[in-house]
Amino acid sequence: MPQPSCTRILPTLSRRSVVAGATAAALTRSAWPAAAAFEDDGNATAAIAHIAAGREIKPGRVKLVLPELAENGNVVALSVEVESAMTATDFVKTIHIIAGQNPLAIIARYHLGPRSGRARVQSTIRLATTQTVTALAEMSDGTLWSGTMSVLVTLSACLDGG
């Protein structure tokens, strides 16, 4: 199976070869305050370890729903719901969406709070290829819970036109 064209393009390029590369990189870093020390190179295990920072990740409480078969990797509907009372003292702080076969492992972080009412977020994501997507929920008490879903992608998000 041919690798999607985008999968590993960036690491092989020198920053100088990218138009305005240095500027863009600096801006990228400044826009990621929570992950300032983390260089996302597409390694999901490293990304999850960085988020966990030594804490235990328990499977459960996170319901991640993606289509089992995604015909177009450019637009994959995502729904994530976390079991939580969502009260002032017990709520979901952050939901991380991680995909290890994408050029960047971290797709998005959703920040919630007691004012959210429900810990449910829906969005659309890109998937470079067939893979397992992980949703990691960080609770107000610091515990981490995870849910996963495998998606078969027939058209990569990395082909031109997307």
């Binding site: 826009a31 990621w32 929570a34 996302d40 450019n74 637009v75 994959v76 969406i97 995909a99 994408n102 050029p103 960047l104 971290i106 797709i107 998005a108 972080r109 959703y110 920040h111 919630l112 709070g113 004012r115 959210s116 977020v121 969005s123 659309t124 994501i125 890109r126 998937l127 997307g162």
Partner: peptide
């Protein structure tokens, strides 16, 4: 703030 998201290249157009 009631909702916020940090989004990267893996978010759809």
């Amino acid at each position: 703030i009631i909702f916020a998201a940090d989004t990267f290249a893996g978010v759809s157009a």
